[in-house]
Design a protein around this nucleic acid. Structure first.
Length: 426
RNA sequence: GGAGAAUUGGCAGAGUGGUCGAUUGCGGUAGUCUUGAAAACUAUUGUACCGAGAGGUACCGGGGGUUCGAAUCCCUCAUUCUCCGCCA
C-alpha cells in the first residue's frame, strides 16, 4: 500500500499517479488525511491516559509493599473511571486505524510519471519492437494442431485426469519444456540471480504481503483444510522471503530467481483466447525478483528488461515491448512493461513476460526495510518479472519454427533438449 | 497422528504478579592504552509509534482474557525439540 506519509506530503503527485488509471481518488485521499489527524489526536490522548494509569499502578505497588493497604485500596477505587475512559480511547483509536487501513488497502499504487494515462490496453505504448515474422507456407498450423501431430502436449488427457487448462506435456514436448526451464534458469544464474526452489503453497500473510490478498482472493486456488493458497506466481514465495526483514546496510542488491508451476483460477474467459496453451490453470514459469534500495530501483528495472530481451533474442522470437497504460497496470505496480511474442500461425501477439516495479507498495505491506547511510529505516523497492512464462513461448516456438517435416529447435536449447528438431518418428 | 518439553533483545541465557524494555555473558560500535595490532579497561548498543520539544506509549512466538498492575496467571493458535507411530 501507499505510504501514508507520501499521501499527506505529496497529495497532488499521488492523485495524479492514481489518476493515470482513470481512477479519481480525491475523496478517499481526503478521507485518509482527515482520519489520520483524528487518529493522531486520539492516540496522543490515549497515551496520556496510559501514562497516568501506569503511574497509579506503580504507586499502588509501592503502597502495598510498604504495608499501606488502606491507601492502596483508595487509589484502586480511582482507577475504575480511568480504565473505562482508557478502553474507550483504545477502541476508537483502533477503529480509526482500521478505517485508515481499509482505505489504504483499497488504493492502487501510484503510477510513475512515464506511465501513459488510459483506461485499457488500447492506450498501451509500444516502446520497442524486434525481429520479423517468419515466412511460413500456407500450411502453417496453430500450436494445438502441431502439439497433436507430434504428440507433444495432450490436452484431452489433462481434462480426463484433472480438468480443462491442465495439460500433459509428453515426449519431445516435455523435454522441450524442461529444456526451456533449464535455459532460463541458467541465464538467470549468469545474470547473478540466486536460484530457489520454493514452496508451491503459501499462507495468508504471504498472500497479503505481495498484494494478492485480499483483492484477488478468487484468483487463487485455496486449500481450505489447511488455510493455504496455491501460488499464482513464484513472486509470492520469493518476495515473501524478505517479509519483516530489516536489512542492516544500504548497499545491497538482492536478486532471486525460481522456477515454479503457477496456479490460476482465471474464471470468465472463452473462445480462442483460451485455446491450447494460450491460457491455462497450471503453467510453468521462471520468475526473477529484485529487492533494491531507493536509488538503484530504476536501474534494476532497466537490467531486468535487458535480461528478458536477451532471452527472447536468443530464442529468435519476434517480440515487442509495451509500456502499459495506467488502466492496464496491475494494482500493486507503479510501472509495468509487457513483452509479447508474435505467434505466426495464430497471427497474434502473446504476452510472455511482465516486468514491474512496485516502488514501496509491496515493501510497505511486507515491512521490508533497510538502514540508510544515516541509520534511518527506509522501505525497500521491490521488482519482479517473468523470465519467462513457458506455455506461450512454447506456442510461439512451435508455430514459428514449423517445417513440413518437423519443428526446429533454437540453437540455444540444443544442449538441453538433446535434439535439434522435433520430428514424428522419434 | 499420539505423548512430553519449550519459544525472552544480533546470539547465548536469567527472570514465575509491582521502579522489568527486561540481570548477565558473547557479539557490534566508539573511546582509553599501544609505533600498529591483540589483550585489558570505559562507554554505548532493539523496533515501531505519538509528541514542536521535553518526554511518552507499545512490543518477552501470534491472538484473546484475568488484574489497579502481566515476560510472569488463564484460554487459544502457531512453531521448534524429544520419544512413539506412519511414510517418499
Amino acid at each position: 500500500m501507499i505510504e501514508i506519509q507520501r499521501i499527506k506530503e505529496r497529495t497532488e503527485e499521488v492523485l495524479a499517479g492514481i489518476g493515470k488509471r482513470n481512477i479519481d481518488a480525491t475523496k478517499e485521499i481526503a478521507q485518509i488525511i482527515a482520519l489520520d489527524s483524528e487518529w493522531r489526536q486520539k492516540k496522543t490522548q490515549l497515551q496520556q491516559l496510559e501514562t497516568e494509569m501506569n503511574s497509579i499502578s506503580k504507586q499502588i505497588g509501592v503502597l502495598f509493599s510498604t504495608g499501606k493497604q488502606d491507601e492502596a485500596k483508595a487509589l484502586k477505587a480511582k482507577t475504575a473511571v480511568l480504565k473505562e475512559s482508557l478502553q474507550e480511547h483504545k477502541q476508537s483509536a483502533e477503529q480509526l486505524e482500521n478505517q485508515i487501513n481499509d482505505l489504504l488497502f483499497s488504493l492502487p499504487n501510484v503510477c510513475t510519471e512515464d506511465v501513459p494515462k488510459g483506461k485499457d490496453e488500447a492506450s498501451n505504448e509500444i516502446v520497442e519492437a524486434f525481429g520479423s515474422s517468419p515466412s511460413l507456407e500456407d500450411s502453417r498450423d496453430a500450436h494445438w494442431d502441431l502439439a497433436k501431430e507430434y504428440e507433444l502436449i495432450d490436452f484431452e488427457l489433462g481434462v480426463k485426469v484433472t480438468g480443462a487448462g491442465f495439460p500433459f506435456y509428453r515426449g519431445q514436448g516435455a523435454r522441450l519444456q524442461r529444456a526451456l526451464v533449464s535455459f532460463f534458469l541458467d541465464e538467470a544464474a549468469d545474470a547473478g540471480y540466486e536460484e530457489f526452489v520454493s514452496p508451491l503453497m503459501v499462507n495468508e500473510n504471504s498472500g497479503k504481503g505481495t498484494g494478492q490478498l485480499p483483492d484477488k482472493e478468487g484468483q487463487m486456488y485455496y486449500i481450505e483444510a489447511d488455510n493455504l493458497y496455491m501460488i499464482p506466481t513464484a513472486e509470492v514465495p520469493l518476495t515473501n522471503i524478505y517479509r519483516d526483514v530489516l536489512l542492516p546496510d544500504p548497499n545491497f542488491s538482492i536478486k532471486l530467481t525460481g522456477h515454479t508451476p503457477c496456479f490460476r483460477r482465471e474464471a470468465g474467459s472463452y473462445g480462442k483466447d483460451v485455446r491450447g496453451l494460450n491460457r491455462l490453470h497450471q503453467f510453468e514459469k521462471v520468475e526473477i525478483v529484485r529487492i533494491e534500495n531507493q536509488e538503484n530501483a530504476a536501474r534494476a528495472l532497466g537490467e531486468m528488461i535487458s535480461h528478458v530481451k536477451s532471452l527472447l533474442e536468443k530464442l529468435g522470437l519476434q517480440y515487442r515491448i509495451l509500456r502499459l497504460c495506467g488502466g492496464d497496470t496491475g494494482f500493486a505496480a507503479a510501472i509495468t512493461y509487457d513483452f509479447e511474442v508474435y505467434s505466426a500461425a495464430q497471427k497474434k501477439w502473446l504476452e510472455v513476460s511482465s516486468v514491474s516495479r512496485f516502488d514501496t507498495f509491496q515493501s510497505n505491506r511486507l515491512k521490508l526495510r533497510y538502514k540508510d547511510e544515516n541509520k534511518k529505516s527506509r522501505l525497500c523497492q521491490t521488482l519482479n518479472g517473468s523470465a519467462l512464462a513457458l506455455p506461450r513461448i512454447m506456442a510461439a516456438l512451435l508455430e514459428n519454427n514449423q517445417l513440413k517435416d518437423g519443428i526446429n529447435i533454437p540453437s540455444c536449447l540444443h544442449k538441453y533438449t538433446g535434439f535439434k528438431k522435433i520430428s514424428k518418428s522419434s
